[in-house]
Simulated scan of single mutants.
Amino acid sequence: MKIITIGGGEISELETLELDYFICQQTGKAKPKALFIPTASGDADGYCRTFQNIYGERLGCKVDFLLATKSNFSQQDAMQQILSADLVYIGGGNTQKMLSIWRDYGIDVALRQAAQNGTVLSGLSAGAICWYDAGLSDSDRFTASEGTSWSLKRLEALGFVAGVFCPHLDKEQRHEPLLNLVRASRERSIACDNGAAIFWENGVARVLTSLPNAYAYIYSEQFGEVRVDRFSSGDRLPL
């Protein structure tokens, strides 16, 4: 199973281009079939155009889209799209809403089967959280009324890889909330800055980066304290 989980970065501004190229390489295909699933963004048109520009025009993929929130969505077609793709990329946005829609339509089951068949799985932010046991999610931000406070929270995900994942560590003040989560739950957590990613292959995790000074981290509880270890591009995580 190959999974690439990206902590963040603007795909349209080429901040993740090295990671995007790496994702395509992992398929072993010269012109891979890339399936974009932007459920977390409500299947935003602009996001789809950006993905086509990067993965289609720049990286040479044959791009398809699974639009689970659109009126012409077909569950049967979605299953076929997922199982025929060489790589699946999940976009960012509302993780909780995305996972709920996937479970309603069996998309989560199809993704697991695709992974077992050798499809490369990938994604950014919500699209990275989804593959782990759980994530530190900002999903409540999308439903909070204007002026109403909301908090980052632990959100159960698909469990394809072990641990809790936290994206955007360097950009969205997530360090303290993640410390509190690990201290309370004693769960080992993995965090990534924007421009950093974790490449999982057959249970082994390695750090990739596309921006300078981007790192990955492991937060672990030890004797009532939380230890934070930082890892650079190319490092293997001791998991």
Rank of each mutant, 00 (worst) to 15 (best):
D138A: 12
V88M: 12
A78D: 03
E146L: 12
F51C: 07
S139E: 03
P167K: 05
A68S: 14
R58Y: 08
P238T: 00
R206P: 10
V207C: 10
A128H: 01
I198L: 15
A110C: 06
I129E: 07
P212T: 09
D229E: 14
R58W: 08
W150P: 12
A128N: 03
P212L: 08
T16H: 06
I82D: 05
F142R: 07
L179Q: 03
S137I: 09
D43P: 13
S74V: 11
T39K: 00
S122E: 00
K153S: 13
P177G: 10
I54T: 13
T143W: 01
A110T: 01
R236K: 10
T5I: 05
K33E: 07
H175V: 13
L237K: 02
F199S: 09
G147Q: 14
T209V: 11
A157C: 15
I90H: 02
C24Y: 00
A68V: 12
V109E: 15
R154Q: 14
G224W: 02
A157Y: 01
G106Y: 02
Q26E: 15
A196W: 04
E201D: 09
A114N: 10
S185M: 07
G118D: 08
E57P: 06
C130V: 02
R230E: 14
H175R: 10
F22P: 00
R58V: 14
L136Y: 01
L35E: 04
R183W: 09
E10L: 13
Q75G: 15
A126W: 03
F36D: 01
K70T: 09
C166E: 07
A85F: 00
D64V: 10
S149A: 12
L59H: 12
G147K: 14
F231C: 04
S232R: 07
Q75H: 02
F51K: 07
D77E: 14
Q52E: 14
S220D: 13
S232I: 10
D77T: 07
S151M: 12
V88E: 10
F142H: 13
M79E: 15
R188A: 11
T95L: 06
A34M: 15
